[in-house]
Amino acid sequence: MPRAIYDGETLIGFASQGLNKETERYELISLMLGHAFQRKGYGLPILMAVIDEMAEMYPCKEIYLSVIYNNKAAIHLYEKIGFKPTGEIEEGHHPEPIYRLDMNDY
C-alpha cells in the first residue's frame, strides 16, 4: 500500500507497506523523504505513524524492513524504534540487512 507523506500542503516523502505473500511477512517496503526534508525531525514521527497504521490495518506481530547497509542515519532511526537485525541479507542493487520489529516491544 503506497502512501504520500505531506507536511501541510507540501509533499515531503513516500512510504509503502504491506504483506509480502512470498514470505508471509508484513513489511515496511520503503520509507523515503525528499533530500530537502532529511535531518529536519520528520523521520521518527513518520516512522511511528507508518508502524501505527500497519498495526491498525493488519494482524501483524512483527514488521520487517531492509535498509542499505551503509545508511547509518536510517539504521539508527530503525534501531531507536526497536528494529533489530535478523542476520538475513536481501540482495538488490546493494546488500541490505533485514531488520525485524517485534510489536510486543514497540
Results as ranks from 00 to 15, higher is better:
residue 42 Y to V: 00
residue 53 E to S: 11
residue 62 E to S: 12
residue 26 Y to A: 12
residue 84 K to R: 12
residue 94 H to C: 14
residue 70 N to Q: 05
residue 64 Y to N: 06
residue 100 R to W: 00
residue 9 E to G: 01
residue 96 E to K: 07
residue 9 E to K: 07
residue 23 T to D: 06
residue 27 E to F: 02
residue 91 E to Y: 06
residue 58 Y to L: 10
residue 51 I to D: 05
residue 70 N to T: 08
residue 62 E to W: 00
residue 1 M to Y: 03
residue 97 P to M: 14
residue 36 A to C: 03
residue 19 L to M: 14
residue 79 E to D: 06
residue 94 H to E: 15
residue 58 Y to A: 10
residue 86 T to H: 05
residue 4 A to N: 06
residue 39 R to M: 00
residue 26 Y to V: 13
residue 35 H to F: 06
residue 55 A to S: 15
residue 85 P to L: 11
residue 56 E to H: 10
residue 7 D to T: 08
residue 57 M to A: 07
residue 96 E to I: 02
residue 103 M to K: 03
residue 22 E to L: 07
residue 55 A to Q: 13
residue 2 P to F: 11
residue 86 T to L: 14
residue 18 G to H: 09
residue 6 Y to D: 05
residue 89 I to N: 07
residue 31 L to D: 00
residue 34 G to E: 14
residue 12 I to S: 03
residue 39 R to T: 06
residue 27 E to V: 00
residue 94 H to N: 11
residue 47 L to I: 08
residue 91 E to H: 06
residue 36 A to F: 07
residue 98 I to V: 15
residue 48 M to E: 15
residue 37 F to I: 07
residue 103 M to S: 10
residue 36 A to L: 11
residue 42 Y to C: 10
residue 2 P to Y: 15
residue 4 A to R: 10
residue 81 I to M: 06
residue 60 C to E: 04
